[in-house]
Design a protein around this nucleic acid. Structure first.
Lengths: 231, 231, 231, 231
DNA sequence: CATGAATGAGGGTTCATTCAT
DNA sequence: CATGAATGAACCCTCATTCAT
């Protein structure tokens, strides 16, 4: 599942799930991401996946079961990759570590925007529009990993947070920055319109600096400077 | 409707909507916010609102009609208040203007968390889980107003953005900061759990600085400073 | 409902149930009696009753609700009639009272064999082939009334039970006699065959004595006399 | 199969049925008895029997086939035992013969209440709740045997039936007495409640007379004597 | 013998909506 | 304005059965 349902069943037959079940998962992810859990009917799923109705129940027990299976697969995969990135850059400087976390999200959204859209739908959509799910539990890992990066950097003296600001707040806003960017990106994507703000195109960032740098530099340095004569 | 459905029909009889229709709107907002449009059935609405089924159709034509009416009411109200705040503080310094925008959102979420939850559900939930709606159109106003605040401040020389950063990006991240905070707030709210990160309690910000200040100072000044010997 | 669903809506509009609901009840009784609860599908019921599917749910909430409604109607009616017969013949001699109870059952089975078949299906069929129902509760009334008849007759000295035999046992066997007769009758009925034993035809009882007399005289006097020289 | 599915495969390896098929039969009997044919699903059976789905079809061809196989096994066994009892007591007096028939039923219900419950479900339940089955055919044997007992006794002058009463009627009521007792017994069994009438406990029959005697003496002698001054 | 995987048809129930009054 | 009654279509799910291996 290293490819977040990229439809490519890896050359080694990868995930040991029968091809039919794979197709169901893939289609379900797409539909849940686009229409949400409630607005997606089992019939739609099986028709799009070209399987018969009972097969869904054979493999996943229920619509709800399918939902949970999918959710766990995706969160597991995300956790796996976040951990891997963190581990790999353990010895790197603070800003590199953050950059790699941001880059990971950029990669994921390019690899499988649908997967991330699904995750966001569950995290940020109405809480009772899908089977019960406590995001805290799953998010704790990602946020925990990033929190540790902050703490280590601070302990090493490599990072000095703004005064009066605890690290949890900074982690929250780190993801806030990331999420906002991705959510806007999804909006433009699904509405098939020109981005009305020049945020995503070529002209967005000055030559040589890609969006990852841009986000990070904003995050670390803030929006800008206030110049008031009276202060 | 100045109170975002606070159940108080203002003393002026305000919106001339019959009490029955008001009840329907109020209940629908609550349910749409909690369960989403698709997962909310017309029967649930009318039962909770204690009206008969055809009444909903009399006043709102259809479930979809009800949705749009609600959406417009809320967005209009938000627009109204954002504009009012902007107008009121036109002569104030840049940071005060921003602070008032943030404060407005804080007020709204206290006044009627449900209303904001509904708006966020539509903005950030799956796009086809509810009747077609292009958020760009509506958001343009809010973001437009804030963009203008930035531009004016820059023109006045009161605000100097980070180099290589366009204003649209800053506005996007301004709302990202706000949204992330509110979304997390909703999570804790709906899951009825202790905030695992100490983000919302008393201890979050140092004495004398409330969350509004906190958010703004982070936004303007960034997360902190990198100290690398090799640089 | 005095006619146990004889399809005749009494001339006074009787039971205040809409005609559609009446038809559903009537058809359901017929099908439940013939095929049992589990083997009868909601689709069958509504098609036979010529109503649309949701109407069943409108009036009865669920298949189970329909079952209970039907059951209660029929048991109530039976209770009503048993009580009425008992009351009416309170001053009559013991054997007359018993005879009237038997006659009541004969009348009911002629009026609406289906109704009785349904009741018997619930009482004597597999216990989990239909929604939970504790027959003891409902049967207590009928058996209670008859038990009282026995007790009064005994107290008046009008009836002397066999030695060593308690009255509960006699009541049980009273209904046993009745039930066996009716169950066999249903068998012949449903299998559309000649009764292989000449139990129900003209020749069964001697001239002038109908089945009611026959049953009662057997019940009171027993099968016959043993004549063994060695005793 | 001499033990009516007592789970003990007789010491002679008896019925040559593979153990798997035995388990299926045993479980099916239990479920059919408790829930009826229609309410019992093939999946329930195979899961409870811990066999795979196609095995049921391999051994019994279909759910219907399983039903018939079971039915025939049980009826054959009952027939066998009724015939055996009749044969064994051919030379005994009339009342002894009847007593042995009653005792046989008591034994069976103690050995395997489930088996008898299944048989009764088929005999007395709704006729179309299970595959077509004409009880007359099978019952003819049992009733025939008992009828013969009556006839012989009458011919020998050992039994004098009540006047005006044919033997078929007496046989019917003989089984009625038995069935009513057993059906009530099942009720108390399945509803796990105290028998509200003291019919089954110690106090039911006077010292030294067990239920078999009690039933028979009632059957032969009737309920009691009417004493009316006016007659 | 025995299995995992697959199926067409139908199970009970609810949907958003509308009719006549 | 307001209602009880009615509807076609769709909901999620399970049925008995069979295929290939």
């Amino acid at each position: 599942m290293s490819m977040l349902f990229d439809e490519k069943k890896g050359e080694e037959g990868s995930s040991e799930l029968p091809e039919m079940a794979q197709r169901i998962l893939s289609v379900a992810m797409e539909l849940f991401a686009r229409k949400g859990y409630s607005a997606t009917s089992v019939r739609e799923i099986v028709q799009a996946a070209k399987v018969t109705n009972p097969m869904l129940y054979y493999y996943f027990e229920s619509k709800e079961g399918l939902f949970y299976r999918l959710l766990n697969l995706l969160f597991d995969e995300m956790d796996r990759r976040v951990l891997a990135v963190a581990e790999l850059n353990k010895e790197e400087p603070f800003d590199v570590q953050l950059r790699e976390i941001v880059k990971l999200h950029m990669e994921v959204v390019q690899e499988s925007p649908v997967a991330l859209r699904f995750i966001y739908a569950v995290l940020f959509g109405p809480k009772e529009s899908h089977p019960k799910f406590n995001p805290e539990v799953r998010r704790k890992l990602s946020t925990g990993v990033v929190l540790e990066i902050f703490q280590d950097a601070m302990n090493r003296g490599e990072f000095v947070p703004r005064e009066d600001t605890n690290l949890e707040f900074l982690v929250m806003q780190f993801f806030g920055m990331l999420n906002q960017y991705l959510l806007l990106l999804f909006m433009h994507d699904t509405h098939q319109i020109e981005p009305p703000l020049n945020l995503f195109g070529e002209g967005c960032c000055e030559a040589g600096r890609d969006m990852v740098e841009h986000l990070l530099s904003f995050y670390l340095g803030g929006a800008g400077r206030i110049c008031r004569p009276d202060i």
